[in-house]
Amino acid sequence: MCEKCETGVEILTRNGEGRRNFLRGGAAVAAAPLAAAGFSGSRAAAQPSDALAQSEVQAWAARDTDGTFAPYTITRREARPKDVVIDIMYSSICHSDIHTYKGDWGMPNFPLVPGHEMVGRVVGVGSEVTKFREGDIAGVGTMVDSCGECVNCLADREQNCLNGTTFTYDSPDQVSGGVTYGGYSKRIVVTEDFVLRIPPGVDLAGFAPLLCAGITTFSPINHWDLKPGQRYGVIGMGGLGHLAVKLGAAKGAEVVVFTTSQDKLEDARSFGASEAYLWSDEEGLRSQMASFDLMLSTVPVAYPMQQFLNMLKLDKTLVNVGALFPVEGAHGMMMGFGRQSLAGSMTGGIAETQRVIDFAAHHGVAATYEMITPDQIGEACERVVNRQARYRYVIDMTAA
């Protein structure tokens, strides 16, 4: 087991190289075909000449803020020289998809095709692609392009592109015009710099959620340098939170979970937590005061945070990755007395996303999920809203 996997901050690129050179290394090309060869239930890859052409693709779109999903045909562009064409096998439902179609962050463009956690088979590559070959298994996450030139992009933080990140769905499409369409579809075309390699021998459906939920929870662990033996609190244990627990445990941290669901206490321990408490357990929460080196809030709605900020040691940080709304209940005097930090984080760059995929494969981490078919998307989204998901819904696009 390498030292970098167990201690210190994760190194995002090898020997200081930019992520584009790193991801184009020979090892990246060699690993993915093994995963393709090991998957027995896939369809045959299309002929390259057909796969590279513009195509009409079956998708499933939300038609309104009620989440009424129906089949919808979209156009995928003709592949450019640096494009990768992927037939999507598995695409998972993120709470962000629900916030988007409900208009929680502003009215979306309907029909809306969500989905930014997907794994599939490469069926075509442009003439200048070096990272992938037909038959490889690849993933696409929360973004599909950025300027590549600003200070943030050059620092491997494409998600913070100063000239405008192109997100995977409902984002202005800088190539084809209109808006981007996501992974609730049977095919996607993406420039190779935003395609992730999926290691051989993993649960492909269980790896799809790593493309958003995994990197969203791993990036703070990496940035705030969570070390083995440190106390790490996870607030909320849904799609994001259960991966936060698994990844923290894989880092060797002492993981403690805080949940509002009685039936998740035992699950938390099975995922690697050493302790788990209900929010209503006042005595249990008091016992955790001033004891944590890092806390991660994965709850998708705003709530009073001060009771959890009080659990931080002096000079430590609570990172919010769940509620992308105005923060509630943080008390300036109390934060000042404990010199506590409340921070935000949202997804991660491409190199860091590849890092969490490789880390998860090395440590045997994958999402816990329930498989559904595309006709069940609307029902599954409602179950997510009602906190009934255990823990990610993954759409089987091969069954469509």
Rank of each mutant, 00 (worst) to 15 (best):
G329D: 04
Y181E: 08
M334N: 14
E379G: 02
A59Q: 07
R43Q: 14
W224F: 15
V255E: 11
R187W: 06
G272H: 04
M118Q: 11
Y391R: 03
E78R: 14
R157T: 10
V151C: 10
F337I: 15
V384C: 08
V299Y: 05
M311Y: 00
F308S: 08
V29R: 15
Q47K: 13
G183E: 07
G252E: 07
V365I: 13
T317C: 09
C150I: 07
M89C: 05
Q306N: 06
G238A: 01
A250D: 08
G18V: 07
M143P: 03
D104I: 03
M346A: 14
C94A: 07
N163K: 10
D136T: 05
L243A: 07
G16T: 08
D358C: 04
I86E: 11
M311C: 15
F359M: 08
H99M: 00
D64H: 03
G38S: 14
Q376P: 05
A400H: 08
G18T: 12
L265A: 10
V234E: 11
I350C: 05
G115C: 06
F325D: 09
K251A: 06
S92V: 05
D263I: 03
L34A: 15
K4F: 15
T259M: 07
Y277K: 05
I235S: 02
I88R: 04
D173I: 02
P111S: 10
G284C: 01
H363K: 14
R19S: 15
A138W: 02
R19Q: 12
V384H: 02
G349Y: 01
S146K: 02
C381Q: 14
F337T: 13
L240H: 06
W105R: 02
L211F: 13
P48N: 09
R77G: 11
V144D: 05
H116T: 06
C94V: 04
G182Q: 00
S42R: 15
Q230F: 04
T73A: 14
F218L: 03
A59L: 06
R187V: 04
G38W: 01
W60H: 12
Q306R: 03
G233I: 00
V119M: 01
E283Y: 01
L324H: 05
P71M: 09
V356D: 05
R355G: 03
N15T: 07
L204H: 07
K102M: 10
V119S: 04
A367I: 09
V365L: 10
V179L: 02
R231M: 11
G201F: 06
A45K: 06
R157K: 13
V179R: 12
N386A: 15
T13P: 00
M89H: 14
V327M: 09
C5R: 10
M333R: 09
R157W: 03
A343Y: 11
M333E: 11
V385C: 05
V319P: 05
V256H: 13
I198R: 04
R392D: 06
T353L: 02
N310Q: 11
M107Y: 06
R43M: 10
D64N: 15
W279P: 00
T217Q: 08
E379Q: 12
R43L: 13
I11T: 14
Q58D: 12
T13N: 15
H331S: 13
V123E: 11
D104W: 06
V394G: 05
Q174V: 09
S297R: 00
G141P: 07
G229E: 01
L23D: 04
T75W: 01
A389K: 00
Y393D: 07
Q354Y: 06
H95I: 04
G8W: 01
M371Q: 12
E128H: 07
A361D: 09
H116R: 08
A28S: 14
